[in-house]
């Protein structure tokens, strides 16, 4: 496949025989949850929808694939979501054919989706590429392929000789996945995962250099750090993961 990076999302277009626009971790309804936790801001659902719309316009995809955590509150659906979700999903359907790989925050989402829209939560293969939210172990059918994964909200901090020059930029992490992740480990081709950043603009992020150590998901535990690479949301190659870890741990140049 060929990737097209849309930094205004951040979103990713996977170009094969099909054009698939991937949008991960939208977290609609988060503002209501924030209010419960003491942060009071108005809902930005309209603004977020507008960003999705503009990505769809730019990408002109065959499929719009929501890579999980479309909604926010666990385990139920909160009032804001109940109010907004049907309209949001309807609007998304009007933009393009919809597919949803459900995430850990998506319990209860099924009732708003058509049968062929909902993908299995441990992943599905579309046009040769694997897609899953990333909170579960991947299905066997995904082995040996390139997997597009959400859930981890990867970010990168850029350091220079003096200090942190740019903090928490949404980032992509491309890494090989250890076969131990799969039940039978039958494939000879390596499995690779492309961890994509969250679309939700206020999502807390996980530093790419700490994703494996965080052990936050079965996939994260199987990341092979040698050879892993980090990209910005516009496709700029930043460095190898090892290069980044080295820079972060370095003493001052003098």
């Amino acid at each position: 496949m060929n990737p097209v990076f849309l930094p205004e999302g951040p979103a990713l277009v996977v170009e094969g025989r099909l054009r698939v626009l991937v949008v991960a971790d939208l977290h609609f309804g988060a503002e209501a949850e924030f209010a419960r936790r003491g942060v009071h801001i108005p809902s930005n659902s309209a603004g977020r929808m507008e960003r999705v719309r503009s990505c769809v316009e730019a990408a002109d995809p065959d499929l719009l694939l929501l890579l999980g955590d479309v909604k926010h509150s666990i385990p139920f659906t909160n009032r804001q979501e109940l109010r907004e979700l049907p309209a949001i999903l309807a609007a998304l359907r009007r933009l393009a054919e919809l597919r949803v790989a459900p995430g850990n925050h998506d319990a209860g989402l099924e009732r708003f989706l058509a049968d062929d829209e909902l993908l299995p939560k441990d992943g599905a293969v579309i046009d040769g590429t694997g897609y899953l939210h990333g909170h579960t172990a991947p299905a066997a059918s995904l082995e040996g392929r390139l997997l597009v994964v959400g859930h981890h909200h990867p970010v990168v901090h850029l350091h220079d000789d003096v200090g942190c020059a740019l903090r928490a930029q949404p980032a992509y992490l491309l890494a090989e996945i250890d076969g131990a992740c799969f039940a039978c480990g039958a494939s000879t081709a390596p499995t690779r995962a492309l961890f994509v950043p969250a679309f939700f603009e206020l999502a807390g992020g996980l530093d790419v250099t700490t994703i494996r150590a965080s052990r936050m998901s079965p996939l994260s535990r199987c990341i092979r750090e040698e050879g892993a690479e980090v990209f910005l949301s516009d496709g700029t190659y930043i460095d190898s993961l090892e290069g980044l870890k080295r820079t972060a741990g370095e003493s001052p140049a003098r």
């Binding site: 924030f34 936790r37 003491g38 942060v39 801001i41 928490a168 206020l202 999502a203």
Partner: peptide, 21 residues
């Protein structure tokens, strides 16, 4: 201004992006 409560729990929120608002 009431945007953030005195005892707000801000983990899992990107506070520095919130401040950008």
């Amino acid at each position: 201004f009431g945007a953030i409560d005195a005892d707000a729990d801000s983990t899992h929120i990107s506070m520095h992006r919130l401040i950008d608002l």
